[in-house]
């Protein structure tokens, strides 16, 4: 028998909070987006105005490339680490997932230390070849930053999936004469697909919304979150900032929802 009133009491704090600080503000954001100089046409400004459209395209491209690179790296690392015991494995794993806790600004700083003027690569390059190698503030630096904060997340997701993969499946495939590439194609990757969707979507959504890294690296390329920030604070164009925010939120939410439904279908349908 259910005690209704108790159930209501349990959910009440979450309901009030969500209503007051999520639903209401999002509604306010939507209204704000419609009150810009161009009204509700502002929603499409991100597509119609060249500056915004370019920014969206760059951000999309960057996020997609980041996702692909991260998936490739994490898949390899996950398979290397799964089902394998060696001294220091735990420590290695901890070190590799440690950057999970870093805010975007710290990641940006790490990239500066890696590829900035005083960075590691530049000093090595100067010492070895006498040539400068500074890339932290370029699109490539941004890409590295995105990979830096994506790899730990996706690695954890994929490692969990790889640990679940029965090693005897791979052994069976080998006993049937399959080479390493065939094993990847026919056995391992299909088993990892659901995790790859989930991890990939998470990676993509995070990359689309990442702000701190771009902020620290202060690149000349405006990614969409930087665009929102500058529209709101510098141009004090709240309506435009709101409509771009909504477009960005819709993209990331859709990516996650799509991946989740695909991952679910894959795990169910076998």
């Amino acid at each position: 028998m259910r005690s209704r009133s108790f159930d209501v009491l349990l959910i009440l704090p979450a309901a009030i909070f969500t209503l007051a600080f999520l639903i209401l503000p999002l509604a306010r954001l939507t209204v704000e987006a419609g009150t810009g100089p161009s009204g509700f046409a502002g929603f499409f400004a991100i597509l119609t105005e060249a500056r915004y459209r370019n920014s969206l395209l760059v951000t999309l491209a960057l996020s997609i490339v980041t996702t692909l690179a991260t998936l490739a790296l994490a898949t390899i690392a996950a398979q290397t680490l799964a089902h394998r015991k060696f001294p220091g494995r735990g420590l290695l794993l901890s070190l590799m997932t440690f950057p999970l806790a870093f805010p975007g600004v710290v990641v940006g700083f790490m990239i500066i230390l890696f590829g900035g003027r005083l960075g590691l690569v530049n000093s090595l390059s100067m010492a070895a070849f006498g040539t400068r190698a500074i890339f932290a503030y370029s699109l490539f630096g941004l890409f590295l930053g995105y990979v830096y904060f994506s790899v730990p997340r996706v690695l954890l997701t994929l490692l969990a999936a790889a640990e679940k993969l029965d090693p005897s499946l791979v052994e069976a495939a080998r006993s049937l004469g399959a080479g390493p590439l065939a094993i990847q194609r026919d056995v391992v990757l299909p088993a990892l697909f659901p995790a790859m969707y989930t991890g990939g979507a998470l990676c993509f959504a995070t990359a689309m919304g990442a702000f701190g890294t771009a902020f620290t690296l202060a690149t000349s390329i405006d990614v969409v979150p930087m665009l929102i920030y500058t529209e709101f604070t510098l141009a004090t164009n709240a309506g435009m900032a709101a409509s771009i925010s909504i477009a960005l939120g819709a993209i990331t939410w859709a990516a996650l929802a799509l991946a989740r439904s695909r991952a679910m279908r894959d795990t169910k349908g076998g």
């Binding site: 999520l22 919304g209 702000f211 709101a242 939120g249």
Partner: peptide, 10 residues
């Protein structure tokens, strides 16, 4: 699922 910037703006 929504970028923090958008939430903050809201």
């Amino acid at each position: 699922a929504i970028p923090g910037l958008a939430l903050a703006l809201a």
